[in-house]
């Protein structure tokens, strides 16, 4: 999708968080991305250094956890792995399933680096 602009809004969120908490810099920035989110993890990684340059997150590292694609079957109750173009139950073949995991594009956590003794706001 729009990985550079997504990275820029990610960096905005991270920068805001760092400022609010009085952090001097940022360590790990962890995302969780699912295969049905529309976000391409590799493109996010490529765009990240461009978006973070010159910010408090300039030295940070982007970690992307890949969320598995999993559905829960409304017919038989099984929770099974699926593929983006086939979200049917792997146990009974029913197409009445709910996505349990797989469309996430979440900022999970941010590691803030603060000088010893400064306060959490």
């Amino acid at each position: 999708m729009h990985e550079l602009s997504l990275c820029q809004s990610l960096i905005d969120q991270v920068q805001q968080l760092a400022l609010t908490h009085g952090a001097q810099s940022v360590g790990l920035v962890t995302l969780k991305i699912g295969p049905l989110s529309g976000v391409e993890p590799v493109l996010m990684q490529h765009a990240y250094p461009f978006a973070s340059a010159g910010t408090l997150a300039a030295e940070s590292t982007l970690v992307i956890e890949l969320a598995p694609l999993q559905v829960r079957c409304e017919s038989c109750g099984a929770e099974t792995e699926a593929e983006p173009s086939r979200l049917v139950c792997a146990a009974c073949g029913s197409c009445h399933t709910q996505l349990v995991s797989g469309d996430e594009m979440l900022l999970m956590s941010v590691e803030l680096i603060t000088a010893e003794g400064s306060n959490h706001v």
Partner: peptide, 10 residues
């Protein structure tokens, strides 16, 4: 070093 959970959509 502080890890803060965010859990917010991009």
């Amino acid at each position: 070093t502080t890890a803060v959970a965010v859990l917010k959509s991009l």
